[in-house]
Design a protein around this nucleic acid. Sequence first.
DNA 1: TCACTTCATCGAACCGGTTCGGCGAAGCTA
DNA 2: TAGCTTCGCCGAACCGGTTCGATGAAGTGA
Lengths: 350, 350
Amino acid sequence: MNIGEIARRAGVSRSTVSYALSGKRPVSEDTRRRIQQVVDELGYRPSASARALANGRTSTIGLVFPPAGNHYTGMQLDFIGSVVEAAAAHDYDVLLSPSGVDSDRSFQRLLGERRVDGAILMEIRLEDDRVDHLAALDFPAVAIGRTAHPERGWWVGLDHTALAAACVHHLADLGHRRVAFVNRPEQLLRAGYESAHRGLDGFTKAAAERGLTVRTYCCGDDAASGQACLEQILHDDPATTAVVTLNEAALGGLYGGLAKAGRHVPRDFSVTGVVASRWAETVTPQLTAADVPAAELGRRAVDLLVERLDHPGASPRHHLLAPPISLRASTGPAGGTSFAQAQTPTHPYS
Amino acid sequence: MNIGEIARRAGVSRSTVSYALSGKRPVSEDTRRRIQQVVDELGYRPSASARALANGRTSTIGLVFPPAGNHYTGMQLDFIGSVVEAAAAHDYDVLLSPSGVDSDRSFQRLLGERRVDGAILMEIRLEDDRVDHLAALDFPAVAIGRTAHPERGWWVGLDHTALAAACVHHLADLGHRRVAFVNRPEQLLRAGYESAHRGLDGFTKAAAERGLTVRTYCCGDDAASGQACLEQILHDDPATTAVVTLNEAALGGLYGGLAKAGRHVPRDFSVTGVVASRWAETVTPQLTAADVPAAELGRRAVDLLVERLDHPGASPRHHLLAPPISLRASTGPAGGTSFAQAQTPTHPYS
DNA sequence: TCACTTCATCGAACCGGTTCGGCGAAGCTA
DNA sequence: TAGCTTCGCCGAACCGGTTCGATGAAGTGA
């Protein structure tokens, strides 16, 4: 079941079999057919390890994803799925690497032992030693997210600043004046997660621009924290009429808190944010939100990585996406007057 | 940066370096230290491909997971995460394989090209050709789920029959007489997905045993389908007072539909089912449900697989889990009387 | 001092592919 | 028919590890 066996049965040399299968040198039609027939009969497939050893490429890309300790979000699952599918389309396999407690160890496995040709990194921080490390090694990698120095790297990212700002403008256009911001957990913000930072920035600046009164909160990645956070918001400023959130996992809790407080969405209170569409559609009423195009990000990351692998030395490229806000049913005008949702915005946010 | 370079710098032969690092033959303390020093200085790590080629083991396991076409559930993400972590603990990497449209192709990659030492299969069907195929090849694999012939294989699974039955008994104990069942999509049921089949079985039998009036529904894996399904349920039998669901993704829609119909949970209507705890806690009120121990299933699957890899020829083993129902806030006595949730059940379901 | 064991190390073969240089036969030109 | 090119294939080396058998030096006992 190795190439020598095929060669023997087809009555040719091993190299001829190799060339017949790879097409890298011409082989007479006659012998090619003979070899192919033997291959088909025996169901022969070349060993990935041997091939990787010989030509120095594993046809595998590493996906460095956050440890299980963090709660996974729907977004991350969509990333993984789309990365795997896109990679398969380019004939690459995907090796998962937990960048968990012992992240050095798994990095050593991926890079040191040369298990992968390139890597895709998730959950980027503004100052990210992993990104710096890979850049220093000139190892082909693409980040899903921007560091503080995005010009130097390969990445695909979401314009969290613009998205959070768009949410603010949307609410301001609806007449809301007192708005709260529900961020990811404080621990992640302190660790420098880019979405938490840039989202907060975008929110703060846009709110200042529109002269809104705001409060910002960090909130654990679970429903209970969301509910507690909302109670805190209403306690701190009962006149709050809207929230913007980046926290998918807390969303259910926010809604729960509003229900408990007797605030009807969207009549008494508006909710919006940056959330994967699948989650935005899960809650009732469905969330008006900037839909995170997770699958597209994953696909584009793979495309960039494959491009980088095919053209070593190419100059850095990136994609910054800013999807429009999808109007659903969770926002309405401030003041409780109920009129049609589809009014014309006075500020362009899509 | 290969073993020859290390050998040269340490003034020994390649084989000595290999033995010093693997410990498979004694090496004098003196030379061992010298080799180790060179290794540390250069940050040498042996190439995974070369090692795999030489000793025939890749230290990688394949995780065959459903295509992105299906909506991913929180459960699946937890599987993936726990499998990766458990594999890392055993010094294995995890290669993702989409068992999608072109599942033969990715199987060929995994097995034919010998990229993995073993495999873990998700989303098992009662009659599953993948399981049969791997069993016929005697390829080390562990299924997360049981086929119709579980005695022959290696698997970890959830006792969906018992879990669905426990939900029925729970509702019956609360006095519910007219109960609906919300299954996964019809397409999956027809395809023979075991959770859909066994869950339906358990529900039906337990309901018959308790003399309940039931209706069963299939429902798409998304919120909109869930809402539509609930409307259908109330249309078909407005006297329905409870549902049991296996469909995580439809849960939000079911709640939405109930809210829209003006049925208060749990006062007017009870909801329960088999759902990962993270999702059960997301909805308001939190779902009383049999929590799917996804992380534990993943971990156990890896443990079984590693055991099988370490002891070829061992006889099949498996784990069948039946977690208890976690009482939360989505079920209450039939008839709308509101009393404390924590009453003593008359039927043992935990 | 010689025969025998033990210990540390080496050289070579092997895993299963890829790739380079070369060689003989056939085809073409003169 | 000699000389040259082209075509199709072969043999050998190589990728970077692991492993087996052998070898020489040191240690042991008679």
